[in-house]
Each structure stands twice: as C-alpha cells, then as structure tokens.
C-alpha cells in the first residue's frame, strides 16, 4: 500500500510540469495552488467529520458519517424515490417558472410601453411585492387548488424579477433607435419587434436568471408548506420526521447541485446573448 503510494507520488512528481500545464486554465499557472487552497477548508472539515464519526464522538442521528450518506443515497436511488421526487420538483419548478415569467414578461412590457398603465399599475404592484413570499402559502392552501397552488406559489416569486428587469430594459431602450424607427415609419408592431424587444432582451434575460433561481428556492418551500404532492422538499420533510439525517443531507446536496446547474446554464445563456449588449455599448 505504502510502496504503491510512493510510486504514485514519484510519477506525479516526475510529471509535475505536464500536470501543472494540464490543470492551468488559459495560462493561469497559479490555478493549481488556488484550487489546493480552496479545498483546504472543506477537506479539513471532511477529515474531522470522518474521524469523529469513526470514533463515535458525534451522535449518528445528528451527524451521519460520510459512509451513511453514501449508503442512504444508494438506498433511495435504488428504490427510485429519489429520482421520482427530484423529477417532480423540477417539473413543478418549470411550470411555475414558465407561468410566472410569461406573466411577468407581459406585465413588464406593458408597463414599459404605456405611461398610463405604468401609473395605473405600478403602485399596486409595488404594494403586493412587499409581501414576503412565504406569506402567500397559507392563502393558497386555503384556496385549495392542489398542485395548482404550489405552481402559483412559485409563479408569484418568479414573476417579480422578470417584471422589474423587462420594465427596466424597455425604459432604457435608446431614444435614437426609436427615432430611427420613426424615420422608417415603423408601425407599433414593427417598433415592438424590431426595436424594443431586441434591445430590452438582455435585461429580460437577467430577470429570467434571477427568476429561475428564486423558483428553485421556492419549490422547496412550497413542498414543505404545502405537502402531499411529492417532490424533493417533501422527501426532506419526511426524512426529518423519521430522523433520517443521512437522507436529509443527500437531499440538500441534490437540491444544491440542481440549483447550481440551472444557474450555470442561465448564466451561459446570458453570456451568449450579451454579445448583443456588447455591440450596443461599443456603438456608443
């Protein structure tokens, strides 16, 4: 065991330069050191956790060992409950997100395009926005729409960032463009599709990214506040009731990973569309 390790260390040492150049991204030669520093703290915590659980210092009910977590993961993966619940949550988020962001987009565009509607609706919109999102849950339970109330709960949270960012995007459309449109005698529809929509779109996209991450946060809340519809949040809640700490940790890691992936894709999309914004800036 030790000799194998020494051999491996020798190979790593002799190939140091190659490994360094493989690890370094875009000529950043300090990256491996940075990565090492970054893993220092999580690594230390992990080792302490491992040692403590080996020595049975920590109660298993509150601090499951890494092995327990892996076993728990296998267990729920094999009986299919994990993927089922995760899938339900993802679908629920997509429904809520699509509903909320579509409504938000329409409201944002309308408020941005019409000064009268802006004055008419902005005050009540702002008043409603002040209500902390969880407070809507009991109301939606009372209306008792089943699955729809969970989706609506997510949609409420998903709608605000899209409204605000779309509105901002439409308001910040440069006047020059609108004037060019006037020169070309664009009608309202043409003005909307050729000028306002393209130049406000990057801002809308920022709203959509925020909206998706809020939706993912709210789906967990929705499933905890309004149970009996399945989903990863409800699975966590049930695991808590059975004191299955290992499964709670599995669920937390899973929701963090899914949230991270969603955010990552939205960010990539935002970057992809930002060439649009870039050229706008360069043209100034």
């Amino acid at each position: 065991m030790l000799s194998k390790f020494l051999l491996l260390a020798g190979i790593v040492h002799s190939q140091k330069n190659k490994i360094m150049s493989f690890l370094s991204v875009r000529g950043n030669k300090y990256l491996p050191i940075k990565v090492l520093e970054g893993t220092l703290l999580p690594g230390t915590i992990f080792v302490i956790w491992l040692i403590c659980s080996r020595l049975n210092i920590l109660s298993k009910d509150f601090f499951p060992s890494p092995g327990d977590v892996v076993n728990g993961f296998h267990e729920v993966l094999n009986d299919g409950s994990f993927l089922d619940n995760l899938g339900m949550s993802v679908i629920r988020v997509l429904k809520g997100f699509l509903l909320g962001s579509t409504v938000g987009f329409v409201i944002g565009i309308t408020l941005g395009m019409s000064r009268f509607l802006e004055k008419l609706i902005t005050p009540i919109f702002n008043a409603i926005r002040q209500v902390p999102l969880p407070a809507w849950a009991p109301l939606l339970v009372l209306v008792s729409l089943g699955e729809m109330s969970r989706v609506l709960f997510i949609a409420i949270g998903a709608c605000y960032p899209v409204v605000l960012n779309t509105f901002e995007g439409v308001k910040n459309v440069r006047n020059d463009y609108v004037e060019v449109g006037k020169v070309f005698k664009f009608n309202r529809v043409q003005r909307f599709f050729k000028i306002i929509l393209p130049s406000s779109f990057p801002s809308t996209l920022t709203g959509l990214r925020l909206s998706l991450s809020i939706s993912w946060m709210l789906v967990v809340a929705a499933e905890i506040f309004m149970t009996s519809g399945g989903g990863i949040g409800e699975m966590m809640w049930a695991c808590r009731e059975y004191s299955r700490m290992d499964l709670v940790v599995v669920c937390i890691i899973a929701i963090a990973l899914v949230g991270f992936t969603m955010n990552f894709f939205m960010q990539k999309m935002e970057m992809f569309f930002s060439f649009w914004r870039l050229t706008l800036k360069q043209s100034r």
């Binding site: 970054g38 893993t39 703290l41 999580p42 915590i45 009910d61 509150f62 993912w216 946060m217 709210l218 789906v219 967990v220 809340a221 905890i224 949040g233 966590m236 809640w237 695991c239 808590r240 004191s243 700490m245 709670v248 940790v249 669920c251 937390i252 929701i255 963090a256 990973l257 949230g259 991270f260 955010n263």
Partner: peptide, 20 residues
C-alpha cells in the same frame, strides 16, 4: 469555495436540517 458551495443550497432547504 466553501461558502459559495453552501450558498448554492436554496435557503428553505436548510429548514429540515436545522430543525433536526
């Protein structure tokens, strides 16, 4: 890195853990 990993967890996801 540790903090940004922790911040990936949706806040309401901490409820069951913290309650335990």
């Amino acid at each position: 890195p540790l903090l940004s990993a922790l911040s990936q967890v949706p806040l309401f996801g901490w409820i069951p853990l913290l309650m335990l």
